[in-house]
Design a binder for these strands. Structure first.
Lengths: 86, 86
DNA sequence: TTCAAATATTGTATTATCTGGATAAAGTGA
DNA sequence: TCACTTTATCCAGATAATACAATATTTGAA
């Protein structure tokens, strides 16, 4: 068990904004701007949190023209969020 | 979904020492001193991390004479750690 | 090109967390 | 009571995380 790496992942999820982002992106892949609107946070703040989630390998980004589409790709993260919902 | 509370729980797990503690306490209930020895960390550091986990409701403490026995009681935490192991 | 939209990056002040030594508190046995 | 063990708490310095304005970059369209 790699505690360093695994706790990094949990720490990334351990922020209300990021947790909400991940949950939102599980339902709806391409909604970066929507997230900014819905969450009522500055664009730079949103972008930084998305960057953290991407660096941890929780999200991947795909460019679609001028827009960026984020998607949750970490299988364990998907399971963890499902557990939280239960 | 209460993002504040849930991210608090994930943040508590999002530290290598605490994650290792939780895993250890899942296997072996009463081993505070053993954790200190095995993890090679100062007693005060261990006690503080245990306090954080207790405050978040992840652990409960039971006094047995001069010793304190910690146990993992959060069902979701148990499930999350199992997912990490898988 | 030039412009606007979408997103990323940078700078920085603020706040939170971590660590570990020192000390306190509480139980136990001599 | 005294010494000892175990655990908790306090404190301060070091480090890390956070928020957000300002600025830069990227892309597509006119």
């Amino acid at each position: 068990m790699d505690y360093e790496k695994e706790s990094e992942m949990l720490k990334a999820l351990g922020h209300p904004v990021r947790l909400k982002m991940v949950e939102g992106l599980m339902k709806n892949e391409c909604n970066v701007n929507k997230i900014v609107d819905v969450m009522q946070i500055p664009q730079s703040t949103a972008s930084q949190h998305l960057g953290i989630l991407k660096n941890r390998g929780i999200l991947v980004a795909r460019k679609e023209g001028v827009k960026t589409c984020y998607k949750v790709v970490d299988e364990k993260v998907l399971q963890i969020v499902k557990i939280l919902r239960a």
